[in-house]
């Protein structure tokens, strides 16, 4: 088990990233709060030390994605994300457009696109984190990119 101080520090450093991963999948605030707490509780209870900051971050990405999936799997949830959320979160219309387009992607593409374009992970790294083959991640990225191109135009990147 980690110390409370370590967990608090992790909330400060990785809170925004976890929140963004939640936005990708979850519709309401309560679910986001649940996942947020679940992820950092798991961090608090995690015994094995992390080899590096990168390792720690990748671990948190995987735990967050899995926690979101668990919430969506539960019986009464709908897997659609709230598009109104985009309005709440972003002030500029252009950004809202991009957010909406990403949130509307199929779930697997969303993770790959976000992790690649926002967090800067390569396909190989994403494959490791999400425990998928690198080629699968390439396919997701290509398809996600294609959908976004159709929605946002050729120069969206």
């Amino acid at each position: 088990m980690k110390t409370e101080e370590e967990a608090t520090r992790a909330v400060e450093i990785y809170g925004d990233m976890v929140r963004r991963l939640c936005v990708l999948h979850l519709k309401n605030r309560q679910d986001t709060e649940d996942v947020f707490q679940t992820v950092f509780l798991k961090y608090l209870l995690h015994d094995a030390p992390f080899a590096s900051k990168e390792h720690e971050k990748a671990w948190l990405v995987r735990v967050t994605v899995n926690a979101c999936r668990d919430v969506l799997r539960s019986f009464f949830r709908k897997s659609s994300v709230s598009l109104e959320l985009a309005e709440e979160l972003s002030a500029e219309e252009e950004d809202r457009e991009v957010l909406r387009a990403v949130l509307e992607l199929p779930p697997k593409y969303k993770d790959a696109v976000y992790l690649h374009y926002y967090e800067g992970y390569s396909a190989a790294e994403i494959g490791k984190i999400l425990q998928k083959k690198e080629n699968t991640v390439y396919t997701w990225l290509a398809r996600g990119r294609e959908i976004l191109r159709q929605r946002l135009g050729g120069d969206w990147e």
Binding site: R19, V23, E33, E94, V102
Partner: peptide, 22 residues
């Protein structure tokens, strides 16, 4: 553009405080 669109999405102070308390 994705970075620009997602940048404003941040963990609210209230959410972080609640989590720390939890």
């Amino acid at each position: 553009r994705i970075q620009k669109a997602f940048s404003p999405v941040q963990a609210e102070t209230e959410l972080k405080e609640k989590t720390v308390e939890f």
